[in-house]
């Protein structure tokens, strides 16, 4: 089980894998995530579900090498198997509960940051197939972090790409594109932003300027991902909520992003400190 059927590096540091997981493929819906435990001694790493094929029994995940554990995942080869893949976890996107006739003709704006393009894809695809108008902004630091451009084009009406250094698409940040679209009078019923916490925070501030309803998907720390450990807690409208069972999607206006960013970096700091101790031989 959990054999890697296909592996492809989308960029030097971002890897797409199609994994054999029939139960998950059958149950997955847009907005949900899964957890991979690469080997027997590996961490449980929450990853977004990029695509799923219930006939083939496979799910597609996209991983960026950011730390030791994501590197480990990306180093698995086609034909090898992960120790565990569990999911789909979290609540599906709210729109899957809406009637098709309600979605047809509705206007959506997606704001994806880097790797966040992967989880945006199944949502855009779902809405596009339901007859909604879908515009997508993809932003990243540079062209090496832009992924799935062609796939996305196939499921949206307009695709806008921007990079910090101008190496792909236009030079600038996603909020500038939002300004241009929204300021130019394009009306959307709903926006969804998935990407780095800091980008979602600024996308939220921008959406507020235009009174545009916005949903964000929070990629918090998690251990079990099934509503047991509480590592993923976030403050939503002043209340503690759990991203793994209450989310991962929340109304952006209610999210305490500063707290979420601080909590997300908790173990990064600890690990840095431990490394530091090692270097001077005290640990």
């Amino acid at each position: 089980m959990y054999r890697i059927l296909k592996k492809k590096f989308l960029t030097p540091a971002i890897c797409l894998m199609e994994v054999d997981a029939p139960r998950i493929a059958h149950a997955a819906q847009p907005g949900q995530f899964l957890i991979v435990r690469a080997g027997e001694k590996s961490e449980r790493i929450p990853l977004t579900i990029c695509d799923y094929d219930s006939e083939k029994g496979s799910v597609t995940i996209v991983t960026q090498e950011v730390g030791a554990s994501t590197k480990k995942i990306c180093h698995y080869e086609e034909g090898e198997s992960f120790a565990d893949v569990v999911g789909p976890l979290g609540q599906p996107s709210e729109f899957v509960h809406r009637a098709p006739q309600e979605l047809a003709g509705s206007r959506w704006l997606f704001i994806a940051g880097g790797l966040g393009t992967a989880p945006v894809y199944p949502q855009a695809k779902y809405l596009h197939e339901a007859g909604a108008c879908v515009d997508v902004i993809i932003g990243a630091r540079n062209k090496d972090l832009i992924i799935m451009e062609d796939e996305m084009k196939a499921v949206c009406d307009h695709l806008y790409i921007c990079t910090d250094d101008g190496s792909a698409g236009e030079k600038g940040v996603v909020t500038a594109v939002m300004d241009r679209l929204l300021g130019g009078g394009v009306k959307y019923d709903q926006a969804v932003s998935i990407g780095p916490m800091i980008m979602m925070k600024f996308a939220t501030l921008k959406a507020k300027e235009y009174n545009l309803p916005l949903t964000v998907s929070l990629n918090t720390l998690m251990v079990d991902g099934t509503g047991m450990c509480g590592a993923c807690r976030v403050t939503i409208a002043g209340k503690t909520r759990f991203a793994c069972v209450d989310g991962p999607e929340f109304n952006a206006y209610d999210v305490d992003f500063d707290e979420a960013m601080r909590r997300q970096g908790m173990y990064r700091e600890v690990e840095k400190e431990l490394d530091h101790k090692c270097n001077i031989g005290l640990h």
Partner: peptide
């Protein structure tokens, strides 16, 4: 309670 360094016993 959401400061860094606070966890549940479960976690």
């Amino acid at each position: 309670e959401n400061l860094n360094g606070v966890s549940s016993a479960n976690e």
